[in-house]
Design a protein around this nucleic acid. Structure first.
Lengths: 124, 124
DNA sequence: TTAACACTTAGAGTGTACTCGAAGTCAAGA
DNA sequence: TCTTGACTTCGAGTACACTCTAAGTGTTAA
């Protein structure tokens, strides 16, 4: 698969994918003889994984570290630790998000109430 | 209240609070005769609100717009629209977060499993 | 065979949200 | 009185994560 196809498949710009490879957020992508990237299943998997993690807010730095460890033996525990730490971060974000959404709901309900009073004919 | 007290109360740097006021993310804070900020209850409320929204990921731009409208009459609907849009954004983040957390859980469980096999004596 | 277009690298530029530095004012304690 | 330290403004600097540009190569369709 070309970078363009991968870019469309996962809705990530080709620039971003190249950037991810350059900084080590995804491992080196195989090339054709002419040097053009030719994504195999593994490479696609990494793109998909990085997209999922990044769109939830996992830091680039943590992913680079994880990918780096992934190709070294005996690093299972260190890899797990990274995942556990990131999971805890997401949990915090989750709580914060839930609380803020509730607060927004409350405020929205308030606006709906006062608008209902001011424009009772909107419903007529 | 001084900016330092407010900063400690809400765990936001004084720099950030001044920045928020400067860009209009919180309304103008009352001053003493010597020009020093003297936060009243309303000002504290705005700080708390902005902290809550920002830490959930609500954009600075949207909050500035909201605060701006807040002091103009007849903008209730526009204000509500901002809140509704931001609420939808948070909902999306929420879904993404949930999915990624589940994925991390799965990966973490996998590491725990292989580590259990490799080091069965850890439990002994 | 030549134009159009996708690809390559390396490095510079951008947007968002702070964060810091400089220069100055003011109040309280040694 | 002098120093310490918190405050002020305003503009510059930083961190993070892209995003774009330049210069060049390779492939395909007219």
């Amino acid at each position: 698969m070309t970078i363009k196809e991968v870019s469309e498949k996962y809705d990530l710009s080709a620039d971003t994918i190249r950037y991810y490879e350059r900084i080590g957020l995804i491992p080196h992508v195989p090339r054709k003889e002419n040097g053009i990237r030719d994504f195999d299943e593994a490479a696609c998997g990494w793109v998909e994984f990085s997209k999922c993690m990044r769109s939830a807010g996992v830091q680039v730095e943590a992913l680079i570290e994880y990918v780096d460890l992934f190709f070294k033996e005996g690093t299972e525990e260190a890899r797990k630790d990274i995942l556990v730490e990131q999971r805890a971060r997401l949990q915090e974000q989750y709580e914060q998000l839930k609380a803020t959404m509730e607060r927004l709901d409350y405020k929205i309900a308030h606006y709906e109430e006062i608008m209902g009073k001011k424009c009772p004919n909107l419903k007529a």
